[in-house]
Design a protein around this nucleic acid. Structure first.
Length: 495
RNA sequence: GGGCCGUUAGCUCAGUCGGUAGAGCACCUGCCUUUUAAGCAGGCUGUCGCAGGUUCGAUCCCUGCACGGCUCACCA
């Protein structure tokens, strides 16, 4: 009587008997004039005016006491208790009420009152079934705990775990804050292609697809960068895009194959301006979401009112190794890795080895809000070289709460130099070569027309959503994180 | 990809030193017109993730697989 099929059947039976009683289990609409939280907030006025209100939501729990019942109705704003009394709704309605169960969506009319225990409630005068639920809700006290089910059936997670919606509401406000910040400063929001014949702007393996009518291979973008800078060349001066990028790489607590990135480009600026933007933007998000510049992530608190630290990539690494890393040969750098049991691909260039060493030796110690600057030129093909310091570029990666949250440069706008850098990248491609950037002739043509000096910045929206909601896994700030299929598809295991 | 851990009722979880399993919630029946994890009385509920192996007997032991979590690696 209570296995899954039986529970489903009992609910189907209820649906049928409701239909026999003339109740439409899936009516088209319901006029509600208020929400659960508004009833709480405006209680005194509503009572003074003896107002009747209507709300709509999901029945979460029911406490039946013969000829009267209490129940909790949940809508997006919160929960309100309703009081259903036979004397008030009449015998016919109460008979129907008995067929209504937890999980069903209902619309309710009633007058606000306070129970003996002092809880604000609605004395129900009438109600309507809005949608019949055919599946039982998870446990009312513990909710839904199983992470796999929570991610796969996010709808159930949202129904029973109220804190989940709060995270995503915050994420939405975070994005709104960024948009407002940029719109207020004259940035133009644009949309550039997701399907690209060449991928670029980052180093990552792409997803590939095929367009039938044009019979051409296409890539899902790994970055928006090269298209946005074409717009800067076109005179748009200040542009930004907030959208999904796709990288065909592993999945872990800070990586999902599709993720949201904000990229902005500002003509006549450089990377120092970008640092200022990051500081201001993060401060505004903190104030908007938390009302304070102080944020806590994983138990550690940072104050965003202060300027961020600057840490030189090459200096910090040189200090850690005890030698100027820019002076070292490929062989010497490899020796440093061997000594520390750091594995390297065979074709690793100096720059790639430096990045590897940095990740192991320096990055773990970056806890305060920090701009890592002075990246090796070799691993930064789109950034301008520092005039006062050859070999390193005007680039930074912002770190917040120990996480790399973005990437920014003074954009390289010399087409001759850009071609050389692309060619160097192509030469560095390994046997598979999919991570290295492709030579984008049209992008170089755009630079040949002339692109103003430009500062560019990319910020990982998922990562900063983690920071500002104190979630330690990227899956908890993505509504539908990528998981393997629930059931292995028959014959679909060719790898 | 490696290591560790998990997978038992719709949900949250116990448990079986190998003899096919339990609680709470949910559900069903009855009582109950201010309850709130409502209460009281009674009842139902399982391919113990999947497939093999060992065994008289496996949910438990072994092997493989699937999915998930953590972690390391990969990934500028």
């Amino acid at each position: 009587m209570a296995d899954e099929k039986e529970l489903f059947r009992v609910r189907l039976d209820k649906r049928h008997s409701l239909e026999e009683a003339g109740v439409d289990p899936y009516p088209t609409r319901f006029d509600r004039d208020t929400t659960a939280s508004e009833v709480h907030d405006q209680f005194d006025e509503l009572v003074a005016e003896e107002r009747s209100v209507s709300i709509a939501g999901r029945l979460m729990t029911i406490r039946r006491m013969g000829k009267a019942s209490f129940a909790n109705v949940k809508d997006r704003s919160g929960v309100i208790q309703i009081y259903m009394k036979l004397d008030f709704v009449g015998e016919e309605a109460y008979k129907i009420w008995k067929k209504i169960e937890a999980g069903d969506l209902i619309g309710v009319r009633g007058t606000p009152f306070r129970t003996r225990a002092g809880e604000i409630s609605l004395q129900v005068s009438g109600f309507e079934l809005l949608a019949k639920s055919l599946r039982p809700l998870p446990e009312k006290w513990h909710g839904l705990r199983d992470k796999e089910t929570r991610y796969r059936q996010r709808y159930v997670d949202l129904i029973v775990n109220p804190e989940v919606l709060q995270v995503f509401e915050r994420r939405a406000r975070l994005v709104t804050t960024i948009r407002k910040y940029l719109d207020d400063r004259g940035f133009l929001e644009v949309e550039t292609p997701v399907l690209q014949p060449l991928y670029g702007g980052a180093s990552a393996r792409p997803f590939t697809t095929h367009h039938n009518a044009l019979n051409m291979k296409l890539y899902l973008r790994i970055a928006d960068e090269l298209y946005l800078k074409r717009l800067i060349a076109g005179g748009c001066e200040r542009v930004y895009e907030i959208s999904k990028d796709f990288r065909n790489e592993g999945i872990d607590k800070t990586h999902n194959p599709e993720f949201t990135q904000m990229e902005l480009y500002e003509a006549f600026s450089d990377y120092n301006d970008m640092m200022r933007i990051v500081e201001e933007m993060m401060r505004e998000i903190a104030l908007e979401l938390h009302g304070t510049t102080s944020i806590t992530f994983a138990g550690r608190t940072n104050d965003l009112a202060e300027p961020w630290k600057r840490l030189s990539f090459v200096d910090a690494l040189s200090e850690s190794i005890g030698r100027d890393v820019m002076e070292m040969t490929n062989k010497e750098l490899r020796a440093e890795c061997d000594q520390r049991n750091i594995d390297l691909p065979d074709h690793s260039s100096n720059g790639m080895i430096l990045a590897e060493l940095f990740d192991h030796l320096v990055e773990p110690g970056i806890l305060d809000p920090t701009f890592v600057i002075d990246f090796p030129k070799e691993i930064s093909p789109l950034a301008k070289e520092r005039r006062d310091r050859p070999g390193v570029v005007e680039r930074f990666e912002p770190y917040l709460c120990g996480m790399e949250i973005g990437n920014a440069f003074s954009e390289l706008n010399d087409p001759i130099e850009q071609r050389k850098r692309f060619e160097a990248q192509v030469a560095l491609r390994g046997p598979e070569g999919e991570e290295a950037q492709q030579l984008d002739e049209d992008y170089i043509r755009a630079l040949e027309y002339g692109m103003p000096p430009t500062g560019g910045l990319g910020i990982g929206i998922d990562r900063i959503s983690m920071v500002f909601t104190d979630q330690q896994s990227i899956r908890d700030v993505i509504l539908f994180p990528l998981l393997r299929p629930e059931q292995a598809s028959p014959g679909g295991s060719e790898e």
